[in-house]
Structures are given as structure tokens and as C-alpha cells.
Nucleic acid binder design. Structure first.
Length: 110
DNA sequence: CCGATGACCATTT
DNA sequence: AAAATGGCCATCG
């Protein structure tokens, strides 16, 4: 495990707490961690998380509800299928009713 | 060691 | 309103 990934581990911790049937965005996580402008890093962390089968990266999409990272999955369409399996409607690589299935990391503060 | 790049987002031109 | 650019942290060459 990359001990040099301080930010990464924080991201993983949050993503792992995402309840089933819910999704979140990179920016939401970045903002929750205190680095609102480091949303890029969150996405980069997710790519690395694919190597570790302990993070549900398929529950993380961009702020548009678009499955931007589907191409990094194996198979790419597997991400969409995984979301639908959890009860999330996905169409054309886009989460339907995104606001309804959106999960805010702020709930971890409780 | 330095430069470039990446599952993004928000602001400015 | 659309397009371009800056910013962030970490990894790779």
C-alpha cells in the first residue's frame, strides 16, 4: 500500500463508506477533504484504487453524473452494469436521477 | 532532480 | 453562452 498516498487513503476511506445504491462526485470528496480544487487528484486516486479491489470506484462519477472513468474498468461497460445492479439507473454512461442517488460525504461527520 | 500528465471543477476571457 | 485556462497532489520518464 502506498504510504506516500496521504490524500489517496483519505479518498479511499470516503469511497468505501458510500452506501450501496448511491453515488458521489469527485468534487464532493475533494471538498470534503478540504481540497476543493484537487478534484483531479481524487479521480487519479480512483484509477489507482482499481488496482486495489477494496474500493467501489464504480460509485464515483463526475459532477455531471457522467461515468467518465468507465474506460478504465474491465470491461468498461461493467461499471454501468455494477451501478444498475445496485439499483441505479444508468443510460448512455450517465446516471439517471443523479441528484436522487447522490450521496454526500458530509454524513460521515455524524 | 525536473517536466509532463491525469476518472475534474470552477473561474475568466 | 462557449471556449480557454488555472489549480490541486501524486506518479512516471
Amino acid at each position: 500500500m502506498p504510504a506516500s498516498g496521504d490524500f489517496f487513503e483519505q479518498v479511499y476511506a470516503v469511497v468505501r463508506q458510500i452506501p450501496e445504491g448511491k453515488v458521489t462526485s469527485y468534487g464532493a470528496i475533494a471538498r470534503f477533504l478540504g481540497s476543493a480544487r484537487s478534484s483531479r487528484i481524487v479521480g487519479y486516486a480512483m484509477k489507482a484504487s482499481l488496482a486495489m479491489n477494496e474500493v467501489p470506484a464504480h460509485r464515483v462519477v463526475n459532477r455531471n453524473g457522467l461515468l467518465t472513468g468507465r474506460h478504465h474498468f474491465s470491461p468498461p461497460e461493467g461499471m454501468q452494469r455494477a451501478l444498475e445492479r445496485e439499483g441505479i439507473a444508468v443510460s448512455d454512461h450517465q446516471v439517471q436521477d443523479f441528484e436522487s442517488v447522490f450521496w454526500n460525504p458530509e454524513v460521515l461527520l455524524a
